[in-house]
């Protein structure tokens, strides 16, 4: 969505494309009017209200977002959030999951995650959680993609998973 906000959209493929475009529209309008980049928390509320607009005919999507928010002192603080398909926000301190493997993801993440992980350890935790949860899920698999967002760069890694 921006250099420091990433959004995952698991769900109906047509809604993924549509929502990607809707959010681009709204983030662009925000940026041009406010003359600054949108903050992750503001973006989370934008996602929430966009989804709730379609309360009685929702997009079949459960968004997950991650980003770095600017603190008043100018430093960056990690941020994650997720919503359900009608925009109920969940600002978690530890982890957020969504998709067909979400039940399994909860279990593995609960076991592997610990507070204040360093970037590379966080990547390993995330990668292991994903690969192991997905192996227990019939609907998802065939590899994974992990974006590690740090204050001066974003590292994208493509993981190989079981192909059966």
């Amino acid at each position: 969505m921006s250099d420091r906000i990433y959004l995952g959209l698991p769900g109906l493929a047509t809604d993924v494309t549509t929502l990607k475009e809707v959010f681009r529209y709204r983030v662009n309008m925000y940026t041009i009017k406010e003359e600054r980049e949108i903050e992750p928390e503001t973006f989370a509320h934008l996602v929430s209200s966009t989804l709730y607009e379609k309360r009685f005919g929702p997009y079949f999507i459960e968004p997950v977002m991650a980003g770095l928010e600017k603190t008043p002192s100018g430093a960056y603080k990690p941020f994650i959030a997720a919503t359900d398909l009608i925009g109920c926000l969940n600002f978690a301190k530890d982890f957020v999951v969504a998709g067909t493997a979400s039940t399994k993801l909860y279990g593995v993440a609960e076991g592997l995650w610990e507070p204040d992980l360093e970037p590379e350890d966080l990547f390993e935790t995330c990668a292991q959680t994903l690969l192991n949860a997905v192996d227990r899920d019939a609907y998802s698999g065939w590899g994974a993609e992990v974006h590690l967002i740090t204050k001066d760069k974003v590292i994208k890694r493509t993981l190989k998973g079981r192909m059966d």
Partner: peptide
Amino acid sequence: VNYARQAAQRHLFSYN
């Protein structure tokens, strides 16, 4: 200006 910005984003939305 606001109208123009909306029109431009609407075009981007429709036609990428």
